[in-house]
Amino acid sequence: MGSVIRIVLQRLALGLLTLLIVSAVIFGAVNLLPGDFAQAVLGQSATPEAVAAIRTQLGLDQPLPVRYAQWLWDAARGDLGVSFAQANFASFTGRVDPSATVLAQIGPRFANTMFLAGVTAAIAVPLAVGLGILAALWRDTAFDKGANIATLSSISSPEFFVAYILILLFAVVNPVLPSLSNIFPGMSFGERLEKTLLPALTLTLVVTAHMMRMTRAAILNLMAQPYIEMARLKGMRPLRVIWRHALPNALAPIVNVVALNLAYLVTGVVVVEVVFVYPGIGQLFVDSVKLRDIPVVQACCLIFAAAYILLNLTADILSIISNPRLRHPK
């Protein structure tokens, strides 16, 4: 086990390093955005003095490296700053309204996004892996081809199109599910789940194809291995051959694709959120870019980057652990 722990620690350290580099890129890129918050909030007629005053208040007059160091140091302590858009500059007193912090802005939105991603993953991952296994088991049959065509067509259609089709089917023609996902604090889990189901189904249709095809390919890739032939020659049933003999050796590529798709669910679902008016982090991110609300944009980017790195790291670690040579050295 020692070697596994060492590798995991190595990967963690590498992940942190990546995050650090990404944070620098984010900070640099966001500051390259044209326009200036002070100018944007005060309008065209603002006096240069007023603009300068706000810039000083917000620390925007400091050189870039200093601001980056300050931001990074605060972020590391969990303080992501104050949302420019929420702070009331007209009556700015130096005291920050707690609801104006970036954390307060992002927190509930992020929780919603995680809830949607979680529900989607709970449906999509077992579905995709299961379909992949069955497609491998019945390869080149009508089922295999049908599953391929269905998943490929759903991934090829634009997300909003898939979403509207589902709304049409389940909210208009058969009104069983709500078409709007207006989620607010204090809702019961069941209610939340009901409201989340349609967007989750939409996203399921979007991410299933990739995972299913990789599962199928990874399994079929192993079917020519001598140990698979051996299992067949021991009289094992096809499903058992795949489940017990092929799947454990195919985990690494499957886990990687699952991680990639989960990362997409956390970071890239703006369109679906807009269609269902789902209060996730994606919409907040887009709105903040429009408003030049730099602290929120930066925090969102950082969360997205961290999600990507963390999920890929988990996939890496899981594929390492799935290798018995590393788990049980000689």
Partner: peptide, 18 residues
């Protein structure tokens, strides 16, 4: 596996590594 069994050339490849 029950009445007819098989022993392959490469045992290293014919045992499932997992």
């Amino acid at each position: 596996g029950r009445r007819i069994a098989y022993v392959a050339q490469s045992a290293a490849a014919s045992f499932n590594p997992a």
